[in-house]
Design a protein around this nucleic acid. Structure first.
Lengths: 229, 229, 229, 229
DNA sequence: GATGAATGAGGATTCATTCAT
DNA sequence: GATGAATGAATCCTCATTCAT
């Protein structure tokens, strides 16, 4: 008895998912350029010939990865009634956790961004997506500033940019080789946003605070600024 | 009459530099894999055949770029008698400035790290170099902590890692396409290290400081903190 | 439905043989250096791309030819209970016959020896093989001397060397062009070893001449023939 | 004071000779294909650019070598009033001696014959030359047969072919690598032609055997021997 | 649907040859 | 005359893609 069309479709969809996931793994491991179509097929456990029934080309695979990833923006930035800072913290934590995994789709995207393999269409999509992310981040950060959870010494846009760079910087790693240092934790990353209020004891300011080093007062110093009253 | 040996050497040296520089430009634009030898030759204004009198292979060009770049670590971490924090600030500023230029050798290196095209030898070198950078950064940060310029809420090693990720994240950009947001300035990056000292008046701590949330001592808490009423 | 693994293997084996044989033909005609990979592929009736599924490189093809040929030494020097001279005669005859054919693998090997294109490993193998051949020939010749079928005026080693040079000299010929003289027959080559018994008076002969081994009377034996009166 | 035109011509001729000789050395050492123009120029101590003032192309160099060598046929086969066998013996000895030297032009020609690098014109020349050599050898051998110095069991043409193969076989050797056995001496080679009288029983011998020239027992004598009256 | 044999466009590399100096 | 910088045709090899079975 032949499979029902429905079953067939299910099988196809599952295969497609497997392939996408295998592709991310392979790209992420070996890098985009050196990864061969047959590597991906092998990783997914089928022949490279069959792979072409699911994707038109190597490029199509990559495009599919990108699109799937980009479409998740709404999950990442899901609305919620927790305070903005809390939402930011969760987001950072997710990204941090992801960037440690070897099959991070974002790593693949970072690769592709840098190596110019992607087609112009995809590149436009990525660019647009990054703009979206930046905009949403900026909005959240602004909200967190209004909440008083992020200081106003830097603009939300710049803070968003810094956050994005930091998180994406964590995706740079060499396939098959550990980095010689550990990735920073979410807490550390969040220092960009929230400056921990110093301990009460700090009130008795350290000696050198009395005669502040000029360098610390130099242009790039953030002048201490009164927070909310 | 043949050119004098001196002339020849001059020509050779100049060309080698041109080539290296052209290669960085081309790799940076197009990525390591997709860049053809003839692209580089063309960018440097010579035939691909001649290029091979200067470098043995495409790989050799990349290796030369990497080695030149890695050898600059001592310039970047030059000793100086200014306070550690000041030195860190300058370093960050340099990196920031560099990462905006389209011919950043570090972008090429980041690419190569991710795309797995580099030879194992070079990859080892890069890894060792990153270890060095991290170690030196950590030392400087520790010193800045002792100076009181960096708070002790995070370990120097983690702060160093965060800094490195952030700065390297800034090298990720698409060739021939502006990112949809501006890179963060040095001042913003430095927020990772130096948290603005709250106002002296803060010594008279707000109510909730009186009973510091224990969570703040826990490694990665971003404990919700009492909002202003 | 895919071909059965068995079919595939059969196809593969057949093709490999075809390729090897085509390669010998092409190399033999055009010489190792000037033969293009695509020449071989074309001669075997497949695309150059496919050729690489059977051999890693041009060099690998040559190596395979050499190794197959070298491994036949045991066939050539198969033990047998006929007298040593008879065995030598057969060997010479085989080589002579082979050297006339245009697809003599030994011609390819001779070429490669002289033109320095072969890798060092293969060259070592060839050298070792020649040593082997010489050693075995020497042993057979010594035996034939003991049998009285070869005179003792020359050392077995030197006779072996002369035989080898002669036979290998027969492999030197220009592709696509007849030599302006005919190759010597086995009978003539064997003159190096066995000297025809001269005068009829020699009838008064050494013991073993009395009951001549039949083999010595065999077709290829030089009937003693009267010289000038 | 400029050199006289005559001096210039002398210098040119000398250079040309040096180049030809260097080319033979290089080709012979490295093989024809792998030898680069600049190898030859370097071996001759001049720049590859200058080389083109003496020869039009790589091919022209090879052609010049061949032609020079072929033109020496008359030296090799110089008439002389010694018996034919004696002349053959000398010829063989010369060839043998030559084939041991690493700069044997004949090795280069053998290479070229086999590897198909030579142009058709040269190949025709070589072929014609070989025909000449064979013809002259045949004539000498026939003469020696009439003299009774070579038995008549084989035709002169076949003996000539065998001699040529043997001598040319001695030119097959791997550049930079000793053969694992010694080349046969002239005496051994000459066995093809003259069969030493074998057994003691031969004492009951033809007339001229009665007073055996002592020289016939010496390893490589081809002492003139009494002709039949 | 599956397979992997087959193809060929594309890019690295070599080296004979030319030519400015 | 000399030199060696410069060129580009030619060839090896890889791998995405197609297609017979």
């Amino acid at each position: 008895m032949p499979r029902s069309p429905r079953d067939n479709q299910d099988i196809r969809d599952a295969r497609r998912e497997e392939l996408l996931s295998a592709a991310i793994r392979v790209f992420s491991e070996r890098g985009l350029g050196p990864s061969k179509i047959s590597d991906i097929a092998q990783a997914a456990g089928l022949s490279h010939g069959l792979l072409y029934r699911y994707f038109d080309s190597k490029d199509a695979i990559f495009t599919a990865i990108v699109e799937r990833q980009l479409s998740r923006i709404d999950e990442d930035f899901a609305a919620s009634d927790v305070p903005a800072f809390e939402r930011l913290a969760r987001l950072v934590e997710q990204c941090g956790a992801r960037s440690v995994r070897p099959d991070d789709a974002w790593r693949v995207i970072s690769q592709a961004m840098m190596t110019g393999v992607a087609s112009d269409v995809v590149r436009q999509q990525i660019s647009a997506h990054l703009g979206q992310v930046h905009a949403r981040l900026t909005a959240w950060i602004a909200e967190a500033q209004r909440d008083g959870d992020v200081d106003a010494a830097a603009t939300p846009a710049e803070l968003a940019a810094a956050l994005m760079c930091l998180v994406r910087g964590m995706t740079i790693r060499m396939p098959g080789m550990e980095l010689p240092f550990a990735m920073p934790g979410a807490e550390t990353i969040l220092r960009l946003l929230r400056h921990p209020t110093p301990t009460p004891g700090a009130a008795v300011a350290p000696a050198h605070e009395a005669s502040p080093a000029p360098s610390r007062r130099s242009p790039r110093s953030h002048a201490p600024r009164p927070r909310r009253t």
